[in-house]
Amino acid sequence: MTAATASAKNALLTWPRPASPEPAGQPLLEFRQVSKIYGTGTAAMRALDGVDLRISPGEFVAVMGPSGSGKSTAMNILGCLDTPSAGSYLFRGVAVETLSHDQRARLRRHYLGFVFQGFNLLNRTSALENVELPLIYRRAPRAERHARARAALAQVGLTGWEGHTPGELSGGQQQRVAIARAIVTEPSLLLADEPTGNLDTARSHEVMELLVGLNRDQGITVLMVTHEAEMAAYAHRIIHFRDGRVADDGRAGGPV
C-alpha cells in the first residue's frame, strides 16, 4: 500500500470527516472488474461478473434490472455491507475489500445513508429518536443530536411530527422519516433501495422530489434501485443490470 492510499484510508476512518470537498475529477465510487460468486464448484452462481463502474460526486443514478440481475448484490457492495469475491471496489480511492469489518462499519457511519423499501424504522420509537439513531452511534452530544435530528425532519417537511411513532405516521411520512435518518449525518452517498416500492403514486413523486432536492441542493450523491421507469426518470443516469453485468448505462433527461 502506498503512503497516499494509506493516508486516504486513515482520512476515511476518522471523525470528523476531513473538511476537504469531494475530490474533483476523481470518482466517488469505482468498480474495477468486480465479481461476486455465491457457492462453490458446479453450484457456483455469478451474481456479478466483472463489472466496471464509475460514479462521480453529485450524480443521481438509478439502478434498474430484473430480479437476479445482480443489482441487489451491487448495491450491497456499494453500501459496504458486502465485499467483492474478485476485483476491487474503491470508495474515494480506498479499496473497501481491504478494510476490516469494523472499518467498513465506520465508513458506513461517516459517509453513507440508507433508505429501504420497507422504511425500516424502529417501531414504538418516536420519529425524533429514529432520526437520532445514527448520531448516537457517532457519539454526538445530546443537544447536537436533538438539533440535527429536528433540522433533518424539517428538511423532509415533518416539523411538528417529531414525537409521533411510525405507527402513527402514513407510509409517505414514514419514508420521509427514514430519509431524514439517512441524511442527518450529512452523508456523501445516499443509497436508496426501492424507496417508493411501498408507496402510492402521489407519495412516490413526493419522495422523489425530496431526493432530487437533496441531490441538487446539498450535493449528496444518490444511488437508487427502482423497477419503475417513472421514478428512474428523475435520475441523471440509469444503469441497467442483466445477468450480473451492466447491460446499459445511459444519461437520462429527467422531467426536472
Binding site: 453500501g79 455491507l81 469489518h101 469494523d102 462499519a105 465506520r106 458506513r108 457511519r109 461517516h110 453513507l112 445513508g113 440508507f114 429501504f116 425500516n120 424502529l122 439513531l133 445514527p134 452511534y137 457517532r138 435518518r181
Partner: peptide, 16 residues
C-alpha cells in the same frame, strides 16, 4: 433481527 440489521447498516460496530 431486522432492527439489528438497520443498526449495523447505519454504522453500529459489532461490539456496540
Amino acid at each position: 433481527t431486522r432492527e439489528i440489521g438497520i443498526r449495523l447498516a447505519i454504522g453500529a460496530l459489532e461490539r456496540e
